[in-house]
Design a protein around this nucleic acid. Structure first.
Length: 207
DNA sequence: TAGGCCATCTGGTCCT
DNA sequence: AGGACCAGATGGCCTA
């Protein structure tokens, strides 16, 4: 029974089989950029970007604005409307006049902006989950980064195939070989047809 | 240049 | 009431 299991995570670095989380050289940079963008409030001391919480100069160098600059910027913005609510927790970062302006004149906008930040954080957590999922679905070494929808569809097909292998009781490698030769019997997913999947699995060095 | 993908903003709805 | 979740709108970036 034990030999029914094949652990993709156990593939060593020498394998041609690759997972995106392991092969995408830009991922750590992107991730750290996002971290910086969302959480490095210290970088915004006295300055605000049009996207408020985006205080990272390296990403939006042109977007560094003073508080009062916001008044004359994007038509969507009114003064104080895009101020990171976290700043309200740090009175030393803003003048009392600025705080009053926020709290008194635009309570809705402050609330709305706080909601925007929460939403961005929520989307970030979803995206990090997608990155994690990308690490666990089979991809070709030369394949470009999977989109979210493709990641989901491939994961579904992958799970279905693994389930079939388990239920079949066959040796995983021979099962995949059989699928390559004769096509996968359970074509449950028309979009990620599982011959794509088995082709990916065939990249695994089994021995 | 069109289409795909993505991040962000936004308002609505649901839940605690 | 406030936060989480969701879906629509929008605009930017990239690629064929």
């Amino acid at each position: 029974m034990e030999d029914l299991f094949f652990d993709f995570d156990a593939q060593d670095a020498s394998t041609d089989f690759a997972f995106w989380g392991q092969m995408d050289p830009s991922f750590p940079q992107i991730h750290s950029q996002l971290d910086t963008l969302l959480f490095d409030c210290g970088a915004m001391a006295g300055q605000l970007s049009p996207w408020s919480s985006y205080g990272c100069q390296s990403v939006f160098p042109e977007a560094q604005l003073t508080f009062t600059d916001l008044d004359s910027q994007s038509p969507q913005l009114e003064v104080g409307a895009e101020v990171d609510s976290s700043l309200l927790d740090e009175p030393h970062e803003m003048t009392q006049q600025q705080q009053r302006c926020l709290a008194t004149h635009h309570p809705y906008k402050v609330q709305r902006h706080a909601a925007n930040i929460r939403e961005r954080k929520r989307m970030l957590s979803i995206n990090s989950a997608f990155e994690e999922l990308r690490c666990h679905v089979p991809t070709f070494p030369y394949e470009k980064r999977l989109s979210k929808i493709d990641t989901l569809r491939l994961a579904i097909a992958y799970i279905a195939l693994l389930r079939e292998i388990l239920l079949s009781g066959c040796d995983p490698k021979s099962y995949v070989d059989e699928c390559m030769k004769n096509g996968y019997k359970n074509q449950t997913n028309a979009i990620w047809n599982t011959s794509d999947l088995t082709a990916r699995l065939s990249w695994i060095k089994w021995d």
